[in-house]
Design a protein around this nucleic acid. Structure first.
Lengths: 100, 100
DNA sequence: CAGTTATATAACGGTATGATTATATATCTC
DNA sequence: GAGATATATAATCATACCGTTATATAACTG
């Protein structure tokens, strides 16, 4: 699964957001998201396959954490459009001001 | 279709990239991508539904263009992770330097 | 208006996706 | 070692998605 496909799913985006504050156990993420245990486990697997998160075992728990690399890759794809929308939104601002 | 789902598909990303340089006719995009005519048409429809592009008719042609708003929205979702990965990648750099 | 060009839509098939239920695996505790 | 806890995997089902072929719609051209 590509990072693009991984973030297409709302629950997976939510998982990533939850991991922003640091490592969390799978069961913790189950509770926080309201997903079923197998559901969360599968989504986490896909995030892992996309390189967006990593896991380490601690006792019987699995601790997930965000991985910066692929997130940055997503950002760098968007980069090529950044100048474009900055220009467009600036133009819109100017237009609004003229209207007033 | 959400913008997240829209950019999950490689051909749609390619369409967006092609539109970066300005308005282009649907038929032009068909040639540039190598997609079938109906295939391109459907992908363009989904990009439209995601708010990532808009169309206007000119004669028998349909001219597609990028729309800045939803692209910026994607970016703003990523924004919340930017500090995170900047920190992480900086840490990695430092680590590499120590290794040497 | 007949034919051609440009594009969209419909219909269909194969495959992937996400949710759910049941089961397996591994670790901890007594 | 027998439960109990934490997590992953398998099996199943319904639905969504993408590509393809065929057809419809609309605008130009002679």
């Amino acid at each position: 699964m590509t990072p693009f496909e991984a973030i297409a799913e709302p629950n997976r985006r939510r998982l990533l957001e939850l991991l922003r504050s640091g490592e969390r156990a799978a069961g913790d993420l189950v509770k926080a998201t309201g997903l079923s245990q197998p559901g969360a486990s599968k989504h986490l697997k896909q995030l892992r396959e996309a390189g967006l998160v990593s896991v380490r075992a601690e006792g019987q728990k699995r601790l997930y954490r965000l991985e910066a690399g692929e997130l940055a890759a997503l950002d760098s794809w968007l980069e090529q459009f950044r100048q474009f929308w900055a220009d467009r939104l600036d133009a819109l601002d100017e237009h609004m001001e003229k209207e007033q």
